[in-house]
Simulated scan of single mutants.
Amino acid sequence: MQSSKDTHPLTLELLSIDDAEQLLAFETENKDWFDQFIPPRESDFYSLQGVTEHIQEFLLDYQCKQLVPFLIKNAQKQIVGRMNFTSINAKKGTAHVGYRVGKAFTSQGVAKRALALAKSELQEQGMKRLFAYAEQSNIASQRVLTSSGFRSIRVVDDFAELHGRSISCIEFSCQLS
């Protein structure tokens, strides 16, 4: 899937074992950035073996139709972010979306453009409704969702724990068809 509306085209590519080294570099480079917003990964993730095992697990879940793991890449085929669709319910046509964009690529519309690509693709595959969660203080993520057609549904208290404290998130939903 490719976005060509702008001078900085993006593609969504299914995660692949061939991406292991580049994904390790991306995740390592952005570790401190991501750890501010989401619970940190285990330390053994940050090795070629750890990332390879992560990819293998995600691809197994993909084969079982439980997950769609995308890499967001720029025109130079550099990973600039990730977008995963989880909790897929084919009967209901629903899924949850989560995304992360590398620090060097924030404020460039990456998440919004990638989400537009993904929504179009998922609608073609029969998805009817997407859900997403954004931490209450993560205004940037909330803007991505609302500008992409998502509406806030409710606040979910104690959604997760981050750095020893409970965080609450806003649940969003978007009707695709």
Rank of each mutant, 00 (worst) to 15 (best):
D32R: 13
V80C: 13
F70Y: 15
Y46A: 04
Q56K: 03
L48C: 09
Q78P: 02
T52E: 15
L23F: 11
L67S: 04
Q56L: 11
D44P: 00
F34M: 04
I55T: 08
C64Y: 05
F45G: 00
D18V: 01
V68C: 05
Q49Y: 15
E27M: 04
F85P: 09
V51P: 01
D18E: 13
T86N: 11
E21R: 07
R82F: 03
S47W: 13
Q49T: 14
V68A: 08
H54V: 09
R41D: 10
G81L: 02
D44W: 09
P69K: 08
K31M: 04
T86R: 07
T28R: 05
P69I: 14
S43Y: 01
F58V: 12
K65F: 12
D32M: 12
T86P: 01
Q66R: 08
S47C: 06
V51H: 03
K73H: 06
I79Q: 11
T28Q: 05
P69T: 15
E42H: 07
V51K: 01
I17M: 05
E27D: 12
F58M: 14
K73M: 05
I79H: 10
I55M: 08
I79N: 12
Q56E: 15
A25C: 08
P40A: 12
K73A: 14
I17N: 06
V51G: 01
D19W: 03
I72A: 06
D32E: 15
N74F: 01
C64S: 15
H54N: 15
S47E: 08
I79F: 07
Q56M: 09
L60F: 10
F34W: 02
D32I: 10
